[in-house]
Simulated assay, not measured.
Amino acid sequence: MRLAFMGTPDFAVPALHALHAAGHEIAVVYSQPPRPAGRGQAVRAQPVHRAAEVLGIPVRTPTRLRADHAEHAFFRDLRLDAAVVAAYGLILPKAMLRAPRLGCLNIHASLLPRWRGAAPIQSAILAGDAESGVTIMQMDEGLDTGAMLLSDRIALTAETTATSLHDGLAAMGARLIVAALDDSGDDPGIVAVPQPAEGATYAARLTREDGRIDWTRDAAAIDRQVRALTPWPGAFTTLDGTVLKIGATAPAERRAGIAPGCAQDDRLTIACGTGALRILRLQRPGRAMMDAEAFLRGQAITAGTRLGS
């Protein structure tokens, strides 16, 4: 099929490679514009942009699409069979949604209608969901409201992190989109199923403040926060006014008489509202993430030390 691929972050790269390897003609790739990144803030092309250049596919990087009628015309004139969208980050206007013969298919990292929106991977972990997955969706003008074509699921455990779930769902999405396009045509075997009205939830865009740890919460909820928000935006607390990113924790026994947010011992075991957590990995400002043992060699934490405001 003759396709356009529209994606920006690492999540979308496996799907681009899978479609290319399957022999589809990818006429163009759309990605968000290059932006400053890294400690030096050098301007850098987005992951999908870089992957497309390696594959020799032309790349377009408009900053907006809604009122860009020249871009709408360019897209229409490509005479596409379909467009594949994966975490692109820009809303497609009606003119572009309707341009391809088979419309636009979205690779969404959740089991729709649960976790429509910007941060489905993190939201599933934060909520303590038992499973997550990928849905291939026929796009419409709503926010992730289109009919569902294919889906698959993956179990979430107490060890699941945003990174591990991201990588698993990216690979799953690549497999599913190839299957969906292989079965598209005049008499496809895949049936588009409208999303049910009930059960819809929304995954709002994350901010840095979402990472602030409230030690009065349940230990299991804080652990999910750490696993969901590492590496970005990062779960964090403070120690004597210094921000510490928390990279990994483990459940521990709660000692009586210790206030939430206080260390129970000299091994970074922190009392929570219910239960306790031992901090396993953490990061000082301007430093790399390190094991708790290495941190404690440079800064002793004694019982009673308070974290957080």
Rank of each mutant, 00 (worst) to 15 (best):
G128D: 03
I177R: 01
A130F: 12
Q32G: 08
A130N: 08
P58H: 13
M139D: 07
V134A: 02
D265N: 08
A82I: 12
A263Y: 02
R278H: 09
R153L: 05
E293L: 12
A256D: 14
A219W: 00
I121R: 00
V178Y: 06
L19V: 04
T230G: 05
V59R: 14
G185A: 03
L296Q: 03
M290H: 02
T61K: 07
G146V: 02
H17Y: 12
Q138G: 04
Q299F: 09
I107S: 02
R60E: 09
P9N: 08
L296I: 11
R76A: 14
Q299Y: 12
P233N: 04
L143E: 10
R278V: 07
W115P: 00
Q46L: 04
E198W: 14
A292I: 04
T135P: 06
H108R: 07
A22G: 05
Q122M: 02
T61R: 02
G275M: 01
L150S: 05
L150C: 07
T157K: 10
G146D: 07
R281V: 01
A42R: 14
Q46T: 11
L78H: 14
I121T: 00
P100F: 00
G273H: 13
T216R: 15
F74D: 09
D214E: 15
V226W: 02
A162P: 00
R76N: 07
E159C: 11
S110I: 02
L280S: 09
M96N: 06
G189T: 15
L296T: 08
P34G: 05
P260M: 09
P260H: 06
A147C: 06
L97V: 07
R98K: 15
G133H: 05
V193K: 10
R287A: 15
A87S: 14
T201G: 09
R114P: 01
G257T: 10
R153Q: 04
A82F: 03
A4D: 02
D214G: 06
C262M: 08
P9W: 12
R254E: 10
E25P: 14
G298T: 15
R98Y: 13
M137T: 11
H20E: 12
G133S: 12
G286D: 13
S309W: 01
I26E: 01
S132T: 08
L244V: 00
L181I: 15
E131T: 11
G38W: 06
A292M: 05
